[in-house]
Computed example of a mutant assay.
Amino acid sequence: MKKVRWGIIGTGQVAHHFARDFCHVKAGELRAVASRSKASADRFAETFDIELAMVDYFSLINSREVDAIYIATPHTLHFDLVKACILAGKAVLCEKPFTLNETQSQTLYDLALERNVFVMEAMWTRFNPVFEQVIDWVEEGEIGLLHSIRASFNTLAPTDPSHRLMDKSKGGGALLDMGIYPIFLAQHFFGKPDFVQNQAVIGDTDVDVFEQVLLGWESGQLASLEASMISCGPNRAILSGSEGYIEIESEWYKAKSCRLVSANGEEQRIALDFPGTGYQFEVDEVNRCLDEALLQSPNYSWQDSLELIATLDEIRQDIGLYYPGEEEPDDDDLEHHHHEHGHHKHSH
């Protein structure tokens, strides 16, 4: 396998986690990092022993020194950066959400196809070995028919109104950062939902600070999901079936252990002590796909990513949360709005 030369755009917290785990990647080299602040780029490069530190995103995108680029900027910049990477012929792993909405994502996947460039949304949970084990158990029928999924992602985010999570102009809110995980989990096993119900709480900065979402499928499955950036929680995931259940232990989206409990109470627990947090596995997947000249990962496809963002769009539309550049419906359109949904203002 040829050694893929990687570059990172953005030097925030997620980029740090990613770079820290890169030493566990099977075949790849971290060559370059770009930040809009020279100090930040230099510091990051020094911390992770990266040769090239750049102060302009486009210098990195057009650099002959990199083959693949990981994008870890605020959500609102994803579209333009992914587009620039595709046009420069660089393979892309873009932090989730891939873009702000389905229209943007579709545009980029169409462009990637046209330009013959590999792109993938960085749904790192999908490639976690514990998650792979859970998939195997479900597919092997270990819990019989899978009927329901319950999962949450609760965290205490910074309350500073200018922080990207609280800032509407940066695509802030709990749904796109935290809620995307439990919704991914449900859709991985059940596909795109037929019914979406949701209750959201809007904070002082006009973004959603937490929500509970109920997804339903014509075939009779349900998923009860929660995302919050103002409360703590166990962050476990439970998959309940006709012959037992699986618990992905805390924190399920980066778990190192899971257990299978059969209907008669027999328990099997698997703990995997992989190094780092687990960001290396998505990089291994990109490198493998590039080695096989694929444009998308068969394990987390463009279709998977599009179906996920479509559900997020539907929930946001229901909340009435629109980001810069998005069309807000006229009041007339809202007449036909479902009334079983509620949104509450939240103030500290």
Rank of each mutant, 00 (worst) to 15 (best):
Asp160Ser: 12
Leu60Phe: 10
Ser105Phe: 05
Lys345Gly: 11
Gly173Cys: 08
Glu292Leu: 13
Ala255Gly: 04
Phe22Arg: 10
Gly278Asp: 07
Ala112Gly: 11
Ile230Pro: 00
Gly233Trp: 07
Glu132Trp: 01
Lys96Asp: 01
Asn299Pro: 00
Phe195Lys: 12
Trp252Ser: 00
Ile71Met: 05
Leu100Phe: 07
Pro329Cys: 09
Leu225Ala: 08
Gly265Trp: 09
Tyr322Ser: 10
Asn264Val: 09
Arg150Val: 07
His344Asn: 09
Glu140Pro: 01
Lys2Ile: 12
Ile246Ser: 00
Phe48Glu: 00
Gly241Trp: 07
Asp291Tyr: 08
Ala174Ile: 02
Ala15Tyr: 10
Ala151Val: 04
Glu114Met: 10
Lys96Cys: 06
Ile69His: 06
Val119Cys: 15
His348Pro: 06
Asp304Arg: 07
Leu272Trp: 03
Phe18Tyr: 14
Met229Ala: 01
Arg288Gly: 00
Ala174Gln: 03
Gly144Ala: 09
Leu93Trp: 03
Ser219Pro: 00
Val4Ser: 12
Lys256Gly: 08
Thr103Gln: 12
Glu51Tyr: 04
Ala151Arg: 01
Asp273Ser: 13
Leu321Ala: 06
Arg288Pro: 00
Val4Pro: 02
Met229Gln: 14
Leu100Gln: 12
Ala34His: 07
Ala263Asn: 09
Ala186Pro: 04
Thr73Tyr: 08
Ala255Asp: 06
Val213Asn: 01
Met120His: 09
Ala34Asn: 07
Ala84Ser: 14
Ser305Tyr: 02
Asp167Lys: 13
Tyr322Thr: 11
Leu239Trp: 10
Ile309Glu: 02
Val286Ala: 04
Ile9His: 10
His78Gly: 05
Asp304Met: 09
Arg164Ile: 04
Asp194Phe: 02
Val261His: 02
Phe127Gln: 02
Trp6Ser: 11
Gly241Gln: 09
Tyr253Lys: 06
Asp318Lys: 15
Leu111Cys: 11
Asp167Pro: 01
Ala91Trp: 03
Thr99Glu: 04
Ser231Met: 06
Lys345Cys: 02
Gln199Asn: 09
His343Asn: 11
Val4Phe: 08
Ala72Met: 03
Asn235Arg: 01
Phe190Trp: 10
Arg64Gly: 13
Asp333His: 10
Leu146Glu: 03
